[in-house]
Design a protein around this nucleic acid. Structure first.
Lengths: 346, 346
DNA sequence: TTGTAGGCGTTATCAC
DNA sequence: GTGATAACGCCTACAA
């Protein structure tokens, strides 16, 4: 019996491995991680064997401080559970894995100041890159502070990648929100709708604003009236609420609604149904994002497909590149489905 | 002009802060992190001011190696984009934030060996805890290796938390899959269904097996025939596929199907519709998990609600506790909706 | 209360 | 090729 109460044995160190293999730490280090070639192959295998026997795993923090750099990428999202962000996160983790990067995740839901605070503490990790998805960098006074914080991080050698619109001096993966919404408007005009409502979030949500503006732009010159704008939350409940309000107001001739994202659109469809209005038949509904469930909802939701996963992947690629202000533009495309069967052009 | 090509200035260190404040590193360290009280308040504020001026942020890796412990929690999931896992992840990040923990995320989709490999490299981070959600620890030969790996990690002072079934000697957050499925079966019997099909994943997926078994158990003694079991993938496509097969086989009298998770159920409903079979009316459909969209799908999906977010929160709490094999049992409850309006008991 | 010095686990620089 | 040894940025006795 070797002792019944050993307590937490601390993990084996490189030192232990070296001793076990009968070589110096330097050699052990080289055999396991270093530029490999310069160690006698017999010793190399001795070391590897010893490492395996001991269950040695290099202490990443120690490596980080010795090498002066980490293999960590920090991802900031507003809500992991939201399909929009989780799709991006999936892309990020996927790409990170192939490049042996570690992904740390921070959630910035609270107020905008919170986002600033998060980025600040994130810097403590000394990540190779900070990827900010869907920030409300737009928000008032904190905006400048956040930019300053990110800039400082960058001059300290970090990479900043934004997934949003290209309006900040950082590498950015943009999603063609404006263009997509514009094309969606044209497509809806094409199937005969003439009178629209737009369910949008407050103007501080840049994504919402861009999609809204794009939609209006797409209607331009068609001679149809300005769409009815209803402001609400950027969430499923927001969409539900807005639809309820539209019903209460008696529709005001609206034939189709464009909700600036799919979860809002889905919420709206449910609200319509709850009010006895049949989406698709009584009123057209379109969203944006083309989330997975768009196709399983009834009627299937017309939307604008956004390569979210791809955005995550590209963000990591940008993180690895060295182009400080590179911009990757991701296309979006309209997907017409049963929720907008169209109206006869009278 | 101070030089136009400064290059990446490395981030300020505690040393810099100390110098700027005119004190020793030790004092600076104490003022910023240490037991605080024992430093003259004037010096303390000097240091804090200097830190703020320089934009200093402590190097977490350095702290980790100096203190011999991190504030990191590693989360292993099978797919971030899956609402099941993203809900758990949301809970984990939420709880981690209130405890100022850093969450790193790893995705274990590939083969089971991949999971082993991931846990191994995760150990390199020396995280306080490794939380494994929905692992297929069941899978054959790698199972023992994985257990051994986790055990090793634990004896090295790490905490292991599993979110799954309680069949491994580690702290576990359990979800009452069996019980939930059992009660679901009874509820469906209660509204009059008598002939069932179960869409389930291969037996190696423990969650699927438990729900399947629970459902069968719930039927027990009611005199209804053994449900028709159709094996398929644990995904939306799997559900679609299974439904298609059931339709092809002419239903064999099946009045309601139980898909072992909601995304499968949703896929199944779409498949039924595509085949001209109206879910709810022509055939009952029930799922498990009660994902957010269950209520927006048509007809609204009968399901078993699982406190996924809560599971994530509790996992972090367990990570902070010191009970090595604690078990937290999370209840599930049946939610009957329009997808199972019931059949007359003839 | 403050500073000095040693140590944490690695890597990198030098001699050998 | 290999082995001492000095970093890396921080914390923490210990001493002053």
């Amino acid at each position: 019996m070797t002792g019944m109460h050993d307590g937490p044995k601390s993990p084996p160190t490189l030192h232990d491995v070296a001793r076990e293999a009968g070589v110096s730490v330097a050699t052990a280090s080289r055999a396991l991680n270093g530029s490999s070639r310069n160690v006698r192959s017999e010793n190399a295998s001795r070391v590897r064997a010893a490492a395996a026997r001991l269950g040695y795993e290099p202490h990443l923090s120690a490596q980080a401080i010795a090498k002066g750099s980490t293999r960590t990428v920090a991802l900031v999202v507003r809500d992991v559970a939201d399909p929009y962000f989780s799709a991006i996160a999936a892309g990020v983790t996927r790409a990170a894995e192939t490049d042996r990067l570690i992904v740390t995740m921070a959630v910035a839901d609270g107020p905008p100041e919170r986002e600033l605070e998060i980025v600040r503490t994130l810097r403590g990790q000394r990540p190779r890159a900070i990827i900010v998805a869907g920030s409300r960098v737009d928000g008032a006074g904190t905006r400048d502070a956040l930019i300053e914080e990110l800039r400082q991080y960058r001059t300290a050698g970090g990479r900043v990648i934004l997934i949003s619109q290209r309006d900040l001096p950082f590498a950015t993966v943009t999603i063609d929100n404006r263009g997509g919404a514009e094309r969606l408007a044209r497509a809806l005009l094409g199937v005969g709708y003439r009178r629209f409502a737009v369910f949008h979030a407050p103007a501080s949500v840049r994504t919402s604003r861009d999609r809204h503006e794009g939609f209006v732009a797409g209607l331009c010159g068609s001679g149809v009236p300005e769409p009815l704008a209803i402001e609400t939350g950027f969430t499923r409940e927001g969409g539900y609420e807005a639809a309820r309000r539209l019903v209460e107001r008696g529709f005001e001739d609206v034939e189709a609604v464009f909700a600036v994202n799919d979860v809002m659109a889905v919420g709206a469809m449910t609200a319509f149904r709850d009010a006895g209005v049949v989406p698709g038949a009584d009123i057209g509904v379109a969203g944006f994002d083309d989330i997975a469930s768009a196709v399983d909802v009834v009627p299937a939701l017309t939307s604008v497909a956004v390569p979210l996963r791809e955005a995550g992947v590209r963000a990591v690629l940008l993180a690895l590149s060295h182009d400080e202000e590179a911009v990757v533009d991701l296309p979006t495309h309209v997907v017409l489905r049963a929720s907008t069967p169209g109206r006869p052009t009278r």
